[in-house]
């Protein structure tokens, strides 16, 4: 009898382990399937980066936010050519002409870049960052990069424990999280984190098929 009970319990344990394994494998597969969505030929991707510097005003209960929002609209003119229209926002520094009636705190730098076969063929001459060579890398969805995963048929939400690997680029940050919605392709991806200085960064991709 004891032997039978022992065999039964062992069998149950094995079954549980197998089920968990299978379920875990399915989750790995579902997450890594998101990488397939990165391969889809979208007609347009809008990449928005918002950096928010939260300040405490002295003698006040109100936190005032300062933020900079930049946008990159990525479109595809042919198989090898990528067009990027960008609008980069930054704070204005004072050059001594304080009496300038038009002096405001923010300014926007607009421009465009054309990328052919991964190399920048032309770019409006300004300070916006578009690397001369696009050396690949980029987002990578792998289960081992995440924790506290919440995965559904049309959404994926998780904490990112390996930001460098997930983003495909070295990044100094904390509390990175990712949220994405999809069906047969991405609708959007939202990545948030705290920068080294403590500001809140939001990187948002919006996809159009």
């Amino acid at each position: 009898m004891k032997k039978l009970i022992l065999m039964f319990l062992t069998g149950c344990a094995a079954l549980c382990a197998f089920t968990a394994c299978t379920k875990g494998d399915a989750e790995v597969e579902k997450i890594e399937r998101l990488n397939n969505f990165l391969e889809i030929n979208y007609s347009k991707i809008v990449l928005t980066v918002k950096d928010t510097f939260i300040e405490d005003l002295p003698l006040s209960d109100v936190n005032e936010e300062l933020s900079l929002t930049s946008e990159y609209v990525i479109t595809y003119t042919d198989e090898n050519t990528v067009h990027v229209d960008y609008c980069v926002e930054r704070f204005v520094q004072i050059d001594g002409t304080l009496a300038d009636e038009n002096l405001a705190t923010h300014e926007k730098i607009k421009g465009e870049a054309v990328i052919v076969d991964g190399a920048v063929a032309s770019k409006t001459d300004d300070d916006a960052y578009i690397p001369p060579q696009i050396i690949g890398g980029g987002l990578d969805f792998k289960k081992t990069y995440f924790e506290n995963i919440n995965l559904g048929d049309m959404y994926f939400i998780a904490d990112v424990k390996d930001p460098d690997a997930f983003m495909g680029t070295a990044i100094t940050c904390s509390d990175m999280k990712v949220e994405t919605s999809f069906l047969d392709a991405f609708y959007n991806i939202l990545i948030t984190y705290r920068s080294e200085s403590g500001s809140k960064v939001e990187i948002r991709y919006a996809f159009t098929l």
């Binding site: 990165l38 391969e39 979208y42 991707i45 990449l47 980066v49 950096d51 510097f53 300062l66 900079l68 930049s70 990159y72 990525i74 595809y76 198989e79 090898n80 050519t81 990528v82 990027v84 980069v88 926002e89 930054r90 704070f91 204005v92 520094q93 004072i94 990328i115 991964g118 916006a128 960052y129 578009i130 690397p131 696009i134 050396i135 690949g136 890398g137 980029g138 987002l139 983003m167 495909g168 680029t169 990044i171 990545i191 920068s195 200085s197 500001s199 960064v201 990187i203 991709y205």
Partner: peptide, 30 residues
């Protein structure tokens, strides 16, 4: 001091923009 302060904020934003563009690598490398 004002200029130094906004320069540091601009630097922070530039880092975020750089990270975002680099993470879009596969979309820019067709």
């Amino acid at each position: 001091n004002y200029n130094k302060y906004v320069a540091s904020l601009n630097g922070d934003a530039e880092s975020a923009n750089k990270a975002a563009i680099d993470s879009a690598g596969e979309f820019l490398n067709r």
